[in-house]
Design a protein around this nucleic acid. Structure first.
Length: 215
DNA sequence: GACCAGGCACATC
DNA sequence: GATGTGCATGGT
């Protein structure tokens, strides 16, 4: 299975090349982006991020000072803006209380401790936590998203209804625990998903081959 | 004008 | 423990 998963990775990688994820200037921006992209198209998130940057709020000090009501209109393009403004402030408060606002403090924790703490933040679930762990804190954990489940269940590697933890274990049991590999693997999955898996008609040209029948 | 997007929390059974 | 629902914008 390890060889199969690496073969699939190589097919995607040969098609898209290195993707240099996560698209952000700083680890802090990765975290804000991870919250903003919850169930939302990245093109909309980009607008929200640009607004935050233009208002000079894309850092700990800025977001600590900003009020929720100030944040909401700025992140409006990313949808769920009231919820996400709360979530961002929740994360900032957590960082303040547990690490005096220093992201390096969180980064120094073990993978297990950091993950537990992130999951306790209201508004941070498994995917957001793991995205932060992998892309902002450089911890070796495999990020599962809707594309991961869709692609690998359609190709027969996973049951269609597999839950988050099951899918994550599947990849982590069969792949070397390597930050760079996990980083690039998830990025390749998202690109493949975006470009070839939005509908069944889009399979044409997919590096993983064309699927027939229901998916 | 539906339908969907790089989820999550909460209510209800 | 499983299933349903609210949150909301912008692109296809």
């Amino acid at each position: 299975m390890k060889d199969k998963l690496l073969t699939i990775f190589n097919k995607m990688h040969n098609h898209f090349g290195d993707l240099h994820w996560w698209p952000a200037d700083t680890p802090f921006e990765v975290i804000i982006g991870a919250i903003l992209t919850q169930n939302t198209a990245w093109t909309n998130v980009e607008k929200a991020i640009a607004n935050l940057k233009n208002s000079r709020l894309m850092d700990y000090a800025g977001l600590k000072t900003a009020k929720e009501e100030e944040l909401s209109p700025l992140i409006r393009p990313a949808g769920y803006y009231n919820q996400k403004a709360k979530k961002i402030k929740n994360f900032i408060r957590f960082l303040e209380q547990d690490y005096t606002g220093d992201l390096d403090g969180l980064k120094k924790e073990s993978l297990g401790v950091a993950r537990e703490k992130l999951l306790k933040v209201h508004g941070v679930g498994p995917e957001t936590a793991d995205s932060i762990l992998l892309y902002a804190l450089e911890k070796p954990i495999f990020v599962v998203d809707a594309y991961t489940k869709r692609i690998f269940s359609r190709h027969g590697f996973l049951p269609q209804m597999a839950d988050y933890h099951f899918v994550q274990d599947f990849f982590m049991e069969h792949l070397p625990q390597d930050v760079k590999l996990f980083n690039e693997y998830h990025a390749q999955i998202v690109y493949t998903g975006k470009n070839f898996c939005r509908s069944k008609q889009m399979c044409e040209g997919c590096p993983l081959g064309i699927l027939k029948g229901e998916g």
